[in-house]
Design a protein around this nucleic acid. Structure first.
Lengths: 243, 243
DNA sequence: TAGTGGTCTAGACCACGAC
DNA sequence: TCGTGGTCTAGACCACTAC
């Protein structure tokens, strides 16, 4: 159990926020859109741009490849992963499977204390939604999910879920989070808490699976909307300049 | 599609076999049992033992942490992951979910050529089983599964499946692969091919899920057998010496 | 035959944990 | 405080790709 705790801390504390290294800088530049999808990432360019030697750059590329925002081919270098609706669909289908499993397992071991904790997190989430604070809402949402998965998951599964979170957050940020989705999310969350409180594994599994698939549908729709808008405004203007 | 090809090659070619670096040496030493589960892995020890500087050791530990054979805690170093039946159960439950999903997706896109290719691989597998060549059989089995997953999987899912393969192979090697399992595996494989040939996603999903769960049951049983034998022969003799 | 990716060396430095 | 993990530097070398 302390094992999971460690992984949890590691993901939240170390890997994502703490390191002052260039990994987080590069990640930020990618998800902020400064480096557009598909652009090449050569070690020389990056090491001069960030004023560092090439070893840190190499490690950063390795790390970000693991996180899924960079794709690298052996001996051919790395590039910012190009992300389309197919990719998002496959990614979220995979997540739906995993999160459904983790929710089922969590339901089988959840205690009264866990349920109370989840209710606290959920009320914070709903507070953020009411206050129209999207940023904090997404953070609370992430916490809600992670708490559930930490109840049962192996470090592998936890790591997987967390690895994807950063790229998903970036996508929501880029394409916008539709306001009307919040009520559905709140509904799902409450139902999931209910399933956990009754140790109803099957219910938790199904609701969580559907919950993720719904978010997939919304995200794909947002991407399609953005694409049609973009092509209407300026056809062929999808190419952005690199560094 | 070329994307997947690259990942596939990368995993088989690069990450596992090609590199002459110490990563593979260290992995071999772990899975061969030279370094027992739970033993600490300090950078100094390893770098002197493998006669190299500490940077390669660091990378190796990072890599093997990703593969799941090493667990590392921030600022507290790394140790060989201790593996018990609970861990194996969680790991294979997770795999069952993922592989079931991938099998379903594969069934929806499988062509006649894919089915033929799978039949070739399967006949090679069955040939190895007949010839009592366990090593080659496991390899062909791995190829069978990977071929299916490469039909649909994202590089993330593929990477995940492959990351676990090495530790599972090590476990089967350590605890022994029960001969009577082969007939069940062959049966499952043929049924899976049949499901793919009819593009029957649901059948592929269910059979593949069961297939993995069965292997979980066998592996856990083998581990329990080994444990009871071990404690009967020499109680408390589970501690092995480090380097 | 470049150019570049990938790896390694041999040191240095800081941060954190154990004593 | 001392040991250790974690990161960085600045250069070297080999393998592979592209030309």
């Amino acid at each position: 159990m302390s094992n999971l705790r460690i992984v949890f801390d590691q993901i939240l504390g170390n890997t994502v926020s703490k390191q002052p290294g260039i990994t987080s800088k590069l990640r930020d530049d990618i998800i902020s859109g400064a480096l557009p999808f598909g652009s090449r990432l050569t070690i020389n360019q990056l090491s001069t741009h960030y004023a560092t030697s090439h070893m840190p750059v190499r490690e950063a590329l390795r790390q970000l490849t693991g996180e899924g925002v960079v794709e690298s081919e052996p001996n051919r270098g790395a590039r910012v992963r190009s992300i389309d609706t197919d990719f998002v669909t496959e990614l979220l289908d995979l997540r739906a499977s995993i999160e459904a499993l983790l929710a089922r397992q969590a339901a089988l071991v959840a205690t009264r204390a866990d349920v109370l904790q989840l209710e606290i997190i959920e009320s914070r989430y709903e507070g953020c939604v009411d206050a129209d604070n999207h940023e904090s809402a997404l953070k609370a949402n992430s916490e809600f999910h992670r708490y559930i998965y930490s109840l049962s998951g192996t470090s592998d599964a936890l790591g997987l879920v967390n690895r994807h979170w950063v790229v998903l957050a970036a996508l929501w940020k880029q394409y916008g989070y539709p306001r009307e989705r919040f009520s559905g999310v709140i509904n799902d969350h409450r139902q999931i808490i209910h399933a956990l409180s009754e140790n109803d594994g099957k219910a938790a599994e199904m609701i969580m699976g559907a919950h993720v698939i719904k978010s997939r549908q919304y995200l794909v729709q947002q991407m399609l909307n953005a694409a049609s808008q973009c092509s209407a405004e300026a056809p062929g203007a999808t190419i952005r300049v690199a560094i």
